[in-house]
Design a protein around this nucleic acid. Structure first.
Lengths: 193, 193
DNA sequence: GTCATCGAATGACAAATGTCACGCGAATTT
DNA sequence: AAATTCGCGTGACATTTGTCATTCGATGAC
């Protein structure tokens, strides 16, 4: 099931790859399967791969001094995950990434990443499109975090990303929104769902 | 004082520009001065320029239904500002940008931006470096917004970005952190500053 | 099949933060 | 110089959200 990657590139570069163009790119990735609860990255380690999710669900999170997890990203099919700073600078990561479901991914090492960047122009295009989209999305998330109440943020997520609510348990949704699980329960009760 | 731009590019592209390389780039920008409180972009308008701040201070913010401003970015010398989505897609912006102090900027239109991207490789490098840094910074800001209390966020800002606290009035700092001005007052009283 | 774990709901209470009204001094306007 | 606005602080009170303890049902482990 490598079509996921191909569709993704086609979409983000706004081109259709030829078969051997795709083959050259695909060959730089390694397939791997992770079981539920398995770590893909642990805090303190260097993030050695850029991760593309073919099937499944991952979470990226930090753990604070009190041992509480704070989910920075909830990721499903056709998303890239990783700690770009750690990946690029080979510095220890502050993030954990683990599997919320059994998950199939494609892994790209830094060496192969750099090779693709220098030999496959379409890959450069995909990357800058990703950066562009990412910047807009994170800006909106910051805006939502500083502007909205817990209830408004939850209702926003419900309106804009209902799939996440069905896919991840509520305590993870709570952490992702930056509130306690009890608060999500209360909001759900209040809005009758 | 165009040296600001030159230093910026040298730093972000990790190269030293030749004089006429720089001249070619510089020629695509327009200098402009804005007075305190003057708008550079208003909600609903298309963001026609990428803005580089040579001297001064700007704020980027949204206004909610209740008329309350929420500051998304506080920007000073050697920063880029703008609404990239609006700039790229020519869509109406949801942001306002105005001058907190008298400010000198360099403006780059979309046409000139695209020309630089296609004719000056160093400009492409600068852009992707900016994107990279931006992604890491916004990720950290999201993490801080969902993980920390108002007090912790304020102390973080004090530790990591004390210049902002001296440069902008406290009510803007409050809005930037997503809390009320009174909360900032209380925190300052509590930590004795 | 039984037991342990986990996700979710709930109520009581505490803590954090927002809202409103007011006062004061500095800066800005006229 | 006088008047106005603005930034900041402060107290009283309301609201939101967090914390803790408990219960229940579903799921998974053995």
């Amino acid at each position: 099931m490598q079509e996921a990657l191909r569709d993704y590139i086609d979409k983000y570069a706004s081109v259709t790859l030829s078969d051997d163009e795709f083959e050259r790119i695909r060959d730089k990735f390694t397939s791997k399967h992770f079981r539920k609860n398995q770590f893909l990255l642990q805090e303190g380690d260097v993030c050695k791969y850029s991760i593309f999710i073919v099937k499944g669900a991952l979470r990226q999170y930090t753990v604070d001094k009190k041992g509480i997890e704070h989910i920075v990203n909830l990721c499903t099919e056709n998303w890239w995950v990783g700690d770009r700073e750690s990946f690029t600078m080979l510095s220890p990561s502050i993030y954990n990434i683990d599997a919320v479901e059994d998950t199939d991914v494609l892994l790209l090492t830094k060496a192969n990443f750099q090779e693709l960047m220098s030999t496959e122009p379409v890959f450069v295009t995909v990357l800058s499109t990703m950066d562009y989209n990412n910047q807009i999305a994170t800006q909106k998330r910051i805006n939502s975090a500083i502007s909205l109440s817990a209830e408004e943020r939850y209702l926003n997520l419900l309106a804009n990303n209902p799939a996440l609510l069905q896919r991840f348990p509520q305590n993870m949704i709570a952490s992702f929104l930056g509130v306690s699980p009890e608060t999500i329960s209360r909001i759900r009760k209040k809005v009758q769902l």
